[in-house]
Design a protein around this nucleic acid. Structure first.
Lengths: 164, 164
DNA sequence: CAACCAACATTGGTTCGGCCAACAATATGG
DNA sequence: CCATATTGTTGGCCGAACCAATGTTGGTTG
């Protein structure tokens, strides 16, 4: 029973927001370490996945689809294009836009990341049966969808008091 | 149906690690905003809760119980004691230690934070029935416990390659 | 008791994700 | 034509979560 000190307070032990954070922290560590073996990060995967599924898109569109801030999309596209995984070219139809396109190497890299990520998910959920994993994912989706949809009170840009 | 661009790629939509992150992000926003109304943050709550439940303790012990890094405990205790919510005094029995004690004001503050947090949990899980919430928390605990216990591969200090 | 090693508090970093504000260039709708 | 939006970009901020190094003190143990 080693040290009794590693028991968290009861208040914390079952607090949903805390449990979610614990799991999220582990999940991120797991995922980050897996992706890091290829020199990629989570944003890279998100953009590559979006590009492969929906085809070439502007940076703004990518941001909308992945929930990544425009400014962060810039940095990620910089990095991806430096590695030859995507290409950035001006949109002739709208000269404000850049059209981002996945390269063949990008597709291959995405496949690799997919494998790594899939393993990470298994490690993460190792303690659940297949049925439980489905349950878990289902509940997560319910919560996530609801949060994304209804309450404007917790959207990123929501200002509560000093409106300025 | 406004803009079709806000649909995330299928790969991402059901990826457990991503769902968990989405929910965690919302949860944190919710909790942070609630606590911010009192000028407190998550670490404050964790330390106060640990102190109230287990009584006076050294900073190292607090860190172990809450999972907060020693260096971050220092900063949090600084802030809490500046607000008069805890007291830091040298341990006469072991002069390496500081004994941290909650003050009466600290207990009162904790009660306030408890209320705020409880509301935040309700908002977070608003889309689930009571039974589902229990299921959800149960699954989260299973996953969290398992991650905390078995795999040394994802503990904070785990070095993978350059052992040095 | 002298040497060592372990534990503690503290300082001072680092990294990453997730934001926001401001800007210039371009589109677009009235 | 003018006002307003959208886009890419730069530059910043903050909190969480770490890690390393330092000085002190405690506890062994040879």
């Amino acid at each position: 029973m080693e040290n009794a000190e590693d028991t968290a307070p009861r208040r914390l032990r079952a607090l949903p927001s805390r449990l979610i954070n614990l799991v999220a922290t582990s999940a991120n560590r797991l995922v980050d370490r897996a992706l890091a073996t290829t020199g990629s990060r989570r944003y890279d995967y998100a953009l590559l996945a979006a590009l492969e599924e929906f085809g070439p898109a502007s940076q703004a569109a990518l941001g909308r689809r992945t929930g990544i801030d425009r400014s962060d999309v810039v940095a990620t596209v910089n990095e991806l294009s430096a590695r030859g995984l995507v290409e950035r070219s001006p949109d002739p139809a709208d000269r404000r836009r850049n059209v981002i396109t996945v390269t063949a190497a990008g597709i291959r890299h995405l496949a690799l990341l997919d494998r790594l990520l899939s393993d990470a998910q298994d490690t993460l959920l190792a303690s659940l049966t297949t049925a439980e994993r489905e349950q878990f994912v289902g509940l997560l989706m319910r919560v996530a969808d609801h949060l994304a949809a209804s309450p404007p009170a917790l959207r990123p840009d929501h200002r509560t008091a000093p409106q300025r």
